[in-house]
């Protein structure tokens, strides 16, 4: 399976795959940024006193979490053109993954905010802060410690999920691997190589996420003792 000829081919494929891995990273970072912002908005909307807004956010979360990423991607890429919105595949993947992870991130934000002692928000309003000010200056900074570790875990999952974008032919690692496979018909070698590249990107990230989890747990304990 691994002969000198194969190694020569691997050397030929590597530059292309590395460029494609760059696209994968770019897609993941953009979708993650979108998810962070949209997720916070959804979480705040869900906690809003306006009934319709909070219910709409709940429905959004349940819809996203109950359906596959692939279906959402296809709805955005193949469905939106029928209402006149045509997105190129890369942008469609960023939007679909970003909106998908926004629902999961909203749940993380909500749990983090709920974990901050209620008295903190009440004290903030007692000294005359508005609800928004209390959220921004008092509650969110404390919720961060609880929110960060699961958010980091989501980054790992998102990075791997970008592979789904190959199914709408968005330029990224898995798509490039498909191309090379159809050119050389060596699927085992090419997909294993792609797998190694995903591993090289995702494994350090998940080690980082675990480190963050421990570090935040320690700092929470310290904060409680202080």
């Amino acid at each position: 399976m691994i002969s000198a000829a194969t190694l020569a081919l691997v050397r030929e494929w590597m530059p292309e795959l590395i460029v494609a891995a760059g696209y994968t990273l770019r897609m993941a970072v953009l979708a993650y940024g979108l998810g962070l912002v949209a997720g916070l908005l959804v979480a705040l909307g869900e906690m809003s006193r306006r009934r319709w807004l909070s219910r709409a956010c709940r429905v959004y979360i349940e819809f996203i979490r109950g359906t596959p990423t692939l279906t959402q991607l296809f709805l955005i890429y193949f469905g939106l053109p029928s209402v006149g919105i045509v997105l190129p595949s890369f942008a469609a993947a960023v939007v679909a993954l970003g909106l998908h992870y926004a629902a999961y991130m909203a749940e993380i934000y909500r749990a983090g905010i709920a974990a901050v002692d209620q008295g903190q928000g009440e004290a903030a309003s007692a000294i005359g802060m508005s609800r928004a000010e209390a959220m921004r200056h008092i509650v969110l900074p404390q919720a961060i410690r609880i929110i960060v570790p699961p958010l980091a875990n989501n980054a790992v999952a998102l990075l791997k999920d970008t592979s789904v974008a190959s199914l709408i032919a968005a330029p990224e690692l898995m798509m490039r691997a498909d191309d090379i496979t159809s050119e050389f018909y060596m699927p085992m070698q090419v997909y294993c190589l792609a797998g190694v590249m995903y591993f090289i990107m995702a494994f350090p990230l998940s080690l980082g996420a675990r480190w963050l989890e421990r570090a935040m747990a320690r700092s929470r304990i310290r904060a409680r003792r202080a």
């Binding site: 790992v156 791997k160 190959s166 898995m174 997909y191 792609a194 797998g195 995903y198 995702a202 998940s206």
Partner: peptide, 11 residues
């Protein structure tokens, strides 16, 4: 856990 399930499926 570090490789996308799509990649594993294709392998």
């Amino acid at each position: 856990r570090s490789v996308p399930v799509l990649t594993q499926l294709f392998i």
